[in-house]
């Protein structure tokens, strides 16, 4: 049985009221959605909030899922929309500008030398992830989303364009611009004494 078939079987069982099927379905995707949220939102608590909102959205709309597209695409479409909503809410709630001190602190977090001397692999991985999060946080959300979808969800530019309601060329330009910006951020970090 393929993954898609398994997903469909689990969805059917969950719609029939099986809590086990629902739990299994959630378990299959929770890690992907959580890490997706972590990269997009930048913090564990926001990633958890996003994940919970996504699965609530999935639960509320599960009966609308027709199986025309893959469940993974459908759930990431929900995650994409929820991330945009959450980012908008956060922007409204927090101050718009960041102080230069905060910028400097972020760059200090990115220093690669500190991760190399860390003996524990897990801590090292966390530092690596922290660096990726900090780099991504320098991008505006629309570019961050393109990078996320292209690099981490392996979506094509056509799929990204459909999802974001933009042209394929715009999606390509956003990706290229984002990579260039990330390169500059990365170089700044390496240039730190």
């Amino acid at each position: 049985m393929s993954l898609t078939d398994e997903d469909e079987a689990l969805i059917a069982a969950a719609l029939n009221g099986s809590p086990l099927a629902w739990e299994k379905l959630v378990r299959r995707y929770e890690s992907k959605i959580y890490n997706h949220g972590l990269r997009l939102m930048g913090s564990s608590s926001d990633a958890m909030d996003l994940m919970q909102e996504v699965f609530l959205g999935v639960y509320r709309n599960l009966h609308h899922f027709r199986g025309d597209a893959k469940f993974s695409s459908w759930i990431f479409r929900i995650a994409h929309n929820k991330a945009i909503d959450m980012n908008r809410r956060k922007r409204l709630m927090t101050t718009q500008t960041r102080t230069s001190d905060q910028e400097e602190l972020d760059f200090l977090d990115l220093i690669p030398g500190e991760t190399n001397i860390e003996p524990d692999n897990m801590v090292s991985e966390q530092q690596q992830n922290k660096r990726v999060i900090s780099m991504l946080s320098k991008l505006p959300l629309e570019q961050r989303l393109v990078v996320e979808l292209k690099m981490f969800q392996s979506q094509t530019f056509e799929e990204i364009a459909n999802l974001q309601d933009i042209s394929v060329n715009t999606a390509k330009t956003r990706f290229y611009t984002a990579l260039k910006k990330l390169k500059v951020v990365s170089e700044k970090v390496h240039a730190l004494p």
């Binding site: 929770e30 890690s31 992907k32 959580y34 890490n35 972590l38 990269r39 994940m51 991985e125 966390q126 690596q128 992830n129 660096r131 990726v132 780099m135 991504l136 990078v147 690099m151 981490f152 990330l182 990365s186």
Partner: peptide, 10 residues
């Protein structure tokens, strides 16, 4: 650098 991301436990 970005692809060195390691999935964190939920």
């Amino acid at each position: 650098t970005l692809t060195q991301w390691k999935n964190e436990r939920t």
